[in-house]
Nucleic acid binder design. Sequence first.
DNA 1: CTAGACTATCGCTAATCGTCGATTAACTAT
DNA 2: ATAGTTAATCGACGATTAGCGATAGTCTAG
Lengths: 95, 95
Amino acid sequence: MAALAKALGHPARIHIVALLLEKQSCIGCDIVDEVGLAQSTVSEHLRILKAAGIVTGEIERPRVCYSLNPDRLRPLADLLSRMLDFGGADETATA
Amino acid sequence: MAALAKALGHPARIHIVALLLEKQSCIGCDIVDEVGLAQSTVSEHLRILKAAGIVTGEIERPRVCYSLNPDRLRPLADLLSRMLDFGGADETATA
DNA sequence: CTAGACTATCGCTAATCGTCGATTAACTAT
DNA sequence: ATAGTTAATCGACGATTAGCGATAGTCTAG
């Protein structure tokens, strides 16, 4: 659980996830271009996200096609929404 | 955004948040007892959570009464639920 | 005034993280 | 077989984090 949050706890990783969310389909090395860091650094971030189960990489030689794997972050999303509930806030948010 | 996730990216901090969620009302030094770390360490974790706006501390001399402040983590909760949507999963989860 | 309870802050150390360039690996095309 | 493209891995570096004990501050109780 903490591991999930930790994996998301870096601007570059949030950037990547947002990118994947926006493009819907998977992307290859364009991610490197987008985030503006060295290829090895991006690869490392991707590795961390994959290790946390947040993204998956499908190999399409010589590229790799990344996409989101939402299942894994259910527990975290759940905690978050319970926390939103806590405040008595109207949680129309989930839409 | 990443800062929020980062603040939650530690087991002790998740523990504290879960505790606050469970007890509903605020707690004092019981947190130290619960998480089983040194007082100074817990104080530091609390400081981090406060800095991220996730918890608030109300001073009740000589105690401090902590509670959750869900408002701040709306953006993160939002991203998470958008990611859950992504997979085409049925998001009856938020309940 | 003294002692007690609770929290915050200050060094300090060990461990982890983020970043990079360089290298290696795997496949495609010539 | 050679060159090109893309990803992953390695080794190194500085920066940040996590943990602790010790100390200081602020109130209450005696």
